[in-house]
Amino acid sequence: MNRLNQLFSTKRENLLSIYYTAGFPELDSTVAIAAALEKAGADFLEIGFPYSDPLADGPTIQHSSQTALENGMNLNLLFEQLKSLRAQVSIPVLLMGYFNPVVQYGIENFCKKAVEVGIDGVIIPDLPMYEYESLYKQYFLEHNLSNIFLVTPITSEERIRKIDDLSQSFIYLLSSSSITGKNLEVSDTVELYFERIKKMELKNPTVIGFGISGNAAFAKACKYANAAIVGSAFVKMLTIEKDYIDKIPAFIKQLKNQTIAA
């Protein structure tokens, strides 16, 4: 059982995950941010590896990706940095990024290396279910690396069931069909969609992401799913604040407090 399954088997509510880009704002900030996030109370993490053409991302994460690349970040270096991850961080950590850098690194090698440094799962938005299942699944299974699938408000029920069968740790529900960095407007339609998914009683835990920037959206998301992911809002904080490590506890606190009060 990897760290993700362990987490979801012990704690099933109000889990908070944070996304940020490796090598941003500084080349060497990757592990220090992870450690600070765990200390501040994040439940699991997604570390993005940068790509030149991140087509599912909005301006904030595009910018962090571009800066990380300019800083010199790449998968080789990231795995090098992550060698010290497990000495400092015990919560589950996933990698998130686009497929081409993985193809160039070698898919099998990527899976092997990721598990070696203590990564629990990966999210590759442009690796769809068909390609994963027919071409690459074996590598992920062999190394016990969870591949996370995305579900959108317009994903069919049949496809969601199939995703549920293929998933090993959780399912990533997009709050809307959009790129990252837009604010979640929790409209009736969105609630109906979350409600519909909840009623499906999926085998896997669910995590809501995209558009969760403040405590109200976080609290709302946690009503329908086991966890919620904050990405662009956190990356924005890293972009603005010079002493970003010191600002992490307050950032996490304001996201979580509201939930506890609600």
């Binding site: 087509l55 690796l127 769809p128 995305l150 579900v151 959108t152 994903t155 069919s156 959009s178």
Partner: peptide, 19 residues
């Protein structure tokens, strides 16, 4: 039938574009 020309092609798209 799967959208491949030999080793090339396919549909490497995020789930948002699947429908």
């Amino acid at each position: 039938e799967q959208g491949y020309y030999g080793d090339f092609g396919g549909a490497y798209i995020p789930e948002m574009l699947y429908p």
